[in-house]
Amino acid sequence: MHVTGARPNFPKAAPVLAALEKRGVRQLLVHTGQHYDANMSEVFFRDLGLPAPDLNLGVGSGSHAVQTAAMMTALEETFLAERPDLVLVYGDVNSTVAAALVAAKLGIRCAHVEAGLRSFDWSMPEEVNRVVTDRLSDLLFATSADALVHLAREGVDPDRMHFVGNPMIDTLLRLRDRFDGSRVVAEVGLPDEYAVATLHRPGNVDDPAALDRLVAALRATADRIDVVLPVHPRGRERLAASGLFDHPRMHATEPLGYLEFLGLVEKSRLVVTDSGGIQEETTVLGVPCLTLRPNTERPVTITHGTNRLVTPDTLADHVDGVLDGTLAIGDQVPPLWDGAAGERIAGIVVDQL
């Protein structure tokens, strides 16, 4: 049983589902409904060619406690009814930790895809989710070598750890020739050279003082290059009220589907983000990525790829460095980010089952 719930889960699950189907494994796909907006969920199933979920629990939004509790209650009923041999969870969202907790309490084996990533920043809800999920999981599928080191330091049995590569990159490579951001470019009126921004983390958009610094930095970026910002639902009102979109070269759009968004990213001059997954996607696409965070759980995107950590105060200087070519950007693709991670995961799952 695959448990997904939020936009970042879907491109990670798609290649695993496909590889297990080829091996004749009986599967059920559960969508908790953590992301329920059509542009945050339904369009991803369509773009990625995912089967319709066998079950949609429809939990919706709420505080971390309310949302996770609702998921655990619904997942417990589901697990008891279906009695899966293995539950596969993905990434670091609330759906992931909820499923791992319920599986552990019921004595059902759990596998965590994207295990071992660490930011060491306990103010991030995702860090709590990652650590708890890894502690409870029987199989840990790592996307990078540093993740194996973190797990080993935490005392994880090496037999439970498997370095498989990044299934999200499987999806990117499979669908790359279908990326197309031309509709958004035309509707917004973007020039040939533009930047893409994404912002949603509470540390950036919930604190008024932090948001003021962020808006000033983004406006300074827009002084240099047009910026298109698909607006995440959780930050829409605050960003609009901040006056960010009063800048003539700052362009807001609705959340975009997978193919449109990565079509925009692939053709962009640079990306400004606080997201985890986009750091990985830009590394493979060769697009400079400036991450507005003090840390990253994906350091391989810095050591091998195009990613740089920046602050609001240093963002404009880094943008200048990208635009004038003085900022050195890596061009290596991390090991095993080769489009075959889903096949590796499926092979291990079948052996375990």
Rank of each mutant, 00 (worst) to 15 (best):
V215Q: 03
E193A: 15
A328N: 12
L88H: 11
G243F: 03
T303N: 15
S137W: 10
Y258T: 06
G107F: 11
T78V: 10
P51H: 06
S182T: 15
A6G: 12
G165S: 11
T253L: 01
L28H: 11
L285E: 08
V97Q: 10
N94W: 00
E154A: 03
E126H: 03
L323K: 08
A346N: 07
L264K: 10
L173K: 05
G305Y: 09
R249D: 09
T301H: 09
V156Y: 14
D159P: 00
D317N: 12
T221K: 03
T314Q: 14
I329Q: 11
T133R: 13
R178Y: 09
D37P: 03
S123F: 07
G33Y: 02
V350E: 15
A341K: 04
Q34E: 14
R118K: 05
R269I: 07
S275K: 06
L75H: 04
A70I: 00
L315G: 12
H304T: 12
A38Q: 13
G330E: 10
A100G: 13
G5P: 00
V231G: 02
V205K: 01
I329T: 11
S182N: 11
L264W: 10
T198K: 02
R178G: 10
R83S: 14
A240F: 14
A147K: 06
E254N: 08
L264R: 04
V205R: 03
L229Y: 00
I329E: 09
A252S: 14
F44L: 06
